[in-house]
Structures are given as C-alpha cells and as structure tokens.
Amino acid sequence: MTDTPGWSSPDQQPNQPPQQQPPQPPPGYYAPPPAGPQPTIKPGVIPLRPLAVGEIVDGAITTMRRYPKLIIGAAAVVAAITQVLGLLVQLPFLDDVVDVATLDPNTVTQEQALEQFTGAITGILTGGLLSVVLVLFGTVFLSGFVTVIVGHAVLGRPVTFAQAWEEFKPRLLPLLGATLLSGLVITVGLVLCIVPGVWLWVLFGLVTPALVLERCGVGTAFGRSKNLVNGAWWRTFGILLLAAVISWVISWIISLPFGLAGAVSTGLSGDPTAALSAGSLVLSTIGAIIASTITLPFTSAVTVLVYVDRRMRAEGMDIELQRAAGHGGI
C-alpha cells in the first residue's frame, strides 16, 4: 500500500522508476477516442472514481465483510479489553456511589454527608478518567489498524494481520499524539461554543487516514485534513454525521436487550441503585463490547473512504490508484 504512488500527497515525491515513453504514431495518424462511457474500474471495495454517499457507506460495510477476521476480530479484542478493564476500574468505587445514593440526611451530619459525597465524586471521576484513557488507546489502535486494511481493500489486495501491524506500528505513537491534540482542540471549541467544536471536528476529521496512509508528520496531517475538507465541509459533515447516526442506532439496538436483561436481573426494581449492581453492569458491558465491535470499525472505515473520495475529487488520485491497482488510468 504505502510503497505505491497512490497514497503520496501532492507535496511528496515518491521514488518511482523512470517510465519508458510509448512509441509515437507516424505523422498524420491519430487514434480515435473510445466510443461510449468508460468502464468503471473497481479492483476492491469501491470504484476508483469520485464516490456517492451510498458507495462510501457500502464500501465500509463491504470492507468489514471482506476482511472479517482482521477487522471484526481486532475490534472484538480491543472492545473486550477496554470495556472489561474499564468495568474493573469502576467496580471498587461502586460502594461509595451506592452509599451516597442511599444516604439518609436524618442520620448523618452535614460534614459526614459532604465527606461521603466528595469521596464518591472523586471515585467516579477517577474511574471515569481511567476508562476514557483505556477507550482512547483502544480507539486509536483500532482506527489506525482499520485504516491500513481499508487502504489495501480499496486496491483489492489481500493483507494479513502481521502485514497490517507492520505497516501501522510506526504510526501508532504519532497517531496517539494527533488524536490527543485534535481532541483537545475540539474540546476547547465545544467549551467556547458548540459550533466551533463541530467545525473543528469536521475540519480535522481526516487526520487519521492522512497520517497513516501518507506517513506524514502530525502537523502535516492536520494541514492535509484541512486542505481536503476545505470547499467540501458540509458534504464531509453530512457523511460523518450519517456514519455517527448509523453507529448510534446499531449500538442502541444491540444494547437494548442487555439493558432489559439487567433490569430483569434486578427484579425491575424502582431502586435507583439497582442499575449499579455488578450483574447489571456486567450485562451492560457485554452489550457495549458487541456494539463497539461493529460500530468502531464501521465509522473508521467510513472516515478512510471519505478521505479517499476527497483526494479523488480534489487531487485526481483516482488516476494514481488505478495505476497502483494495475490499470493504465483514464
């Protein structure tokens, strides 16, 4: 993938062997152009031309179906590790939360109530922060790993876990830094006002595929994403939002039975602390693992295909990809 000229940015100069010039026709001879529309070249999961929205979504689903062991397998392992560790991190703080929820103000002093409340809040924040860190690491790994696989899938090339990991491994730490930086910038934008945060989320939405596929630096990846999104912000926003909505619906459908099972396991109790029982949390965690196994790689694949579509539209990358796939281009 990365040794082909198809993924190089326009500013990069990939090392290519000199191409032999084709023989020139004799004077006065001109070959007539081929009649009719040119056939669509589709060596992999998408046609190598600017894509419609439906083709981007279909390409993401097709990639997951064509590489199920790599994508679904990796997503299941990552989701299981992050969700289970997150549950284990939060379990020690459940007693404090339950104590505060069942606190009787008539039996404790104001100082005791404040002490218990402060301890519970500290525990919740600590557990939540550790869970977020775990999910962040898992999401960064999975998004970069899926990006490599989609890069192969676009060209219709087989790839193994070892090959994908070997290509992605040097990009893991830069991708982690880029994710933290973009998260910080977007969060500041959301705090100041929701609109700047959403604008920045879309503007830097293509940082991951640019950094992984082009093998550029963090700052360059941000610039590449900005340049590709400029002039197509609303279209990019619509596609990313559509992917997020689809993922939310899938997650809700999968998590619903586990939430109902958790409610049944507590005897449909009206006690608000029943939802914090270990059994209910375990069932919720199982539902989250299954949902994340499907939604995380789907959104990552959609993002990569949006990046590919923007490069084909703005930079004519479809020609390079056709050549990389073994076609002469059009």
Rank of each mutant, 00 (worst) to 15 (best):
L203N: 01
V132T: 13
T303K: 08
I72M: 13
N106G: 14
L190F: 15
T293L: 09
L206V: 05
A101S: 11
H327F: 15
F168M: 10
V77D: 03
G189S: 06
V77Q: 07
F204T: 00
A76Q: 09
A232L: 05
W165P: 05
E315R: 04
L175A: 06
F145Y: 06
I319M: 11
L296S: 10
F222D: 08
L125K: 00
L48G: 02
G329F: 01
V202E: 04
W165D: 05
E111T: 10
S280A: 15
V132H: 13
V188A: 05
L181N: 06
V207Y: 01
E167D: 15
P272E: 02
T187M: 12
P257M: 07
A31V: 14
W234G: 09
A76M: 09
C193Y: 13
T139K: 12
F137R: 04
P43N: 05
R66P: 09
E115K: 12
I186G: 14
G28A: 14
R323T: 06
I250P: 03
S131W: 05
T208H: 07
I71V: 10
L200D: 00
R49A: 14
A120S: 13
R310L: 14
A76V: 01
V45P: 00
I149P: 07
S265T: 10
G59Y: 03
I246T: 08
A35Y: 10
V108R: 12
I186T: 02
A153E: 02
T107D: 08
V108T: 14
Y30F: 15
A278F: 09
R311I: 03
L155P: 08
G28E: 10
G279S: 13
F161N: 11
L142E: 08
G119W: 08
P92I: 15
H152D: 13
L51E: 05
T285R: 05
V245A: 08
L184N: 02
H152Q: 06
L213Q: 01
L268A: 05
N230F: 13
T187Q: 04
W199L: 15
A101M: 15
A263I: 12
G127D: 05
L136R: 02
Q12P: 11
A274C: 03
E55R: 06
A232Q: 14
E111C: 07
Q163N: 04
T208N: 14
T273Y: 04
Q116V: 03
T273L: 14
A325H: 04
G270T: 04
T147N: 02
Q116L: 14
I46T: 02
F145Q: 00
L241P: 01
V154E: 00
F93C: 09
A244T: 15
Q112C: 08
P272H: 12
L85I: 04
D3P: 13
A79H: 10
P47I: 01
K169S: 14
G138N: 13
S251C: 05
L88F: 03
P14S: 09
A243Y: 09
L256F: 15
R235H: 14
V264T: 06
T295D: 03
G287A: 01
S265W: 12
I194L: 14
S247T: 04
V195F: 10
G326Y: 06
I289F: 05
G28L: 07
D11R: 12
Y29P: 01
V198K: 01
V282F: 07
T107M: 11
L305Y: 03
P209Q: 02
A80V: 11
T122V: 11
G36E: 06
V45N: 02
L213F: 11
T126W: 00
I72H: 06
V97P: 00
R311S: 10
G316Q: 10
L200V: 02
P18M: 08
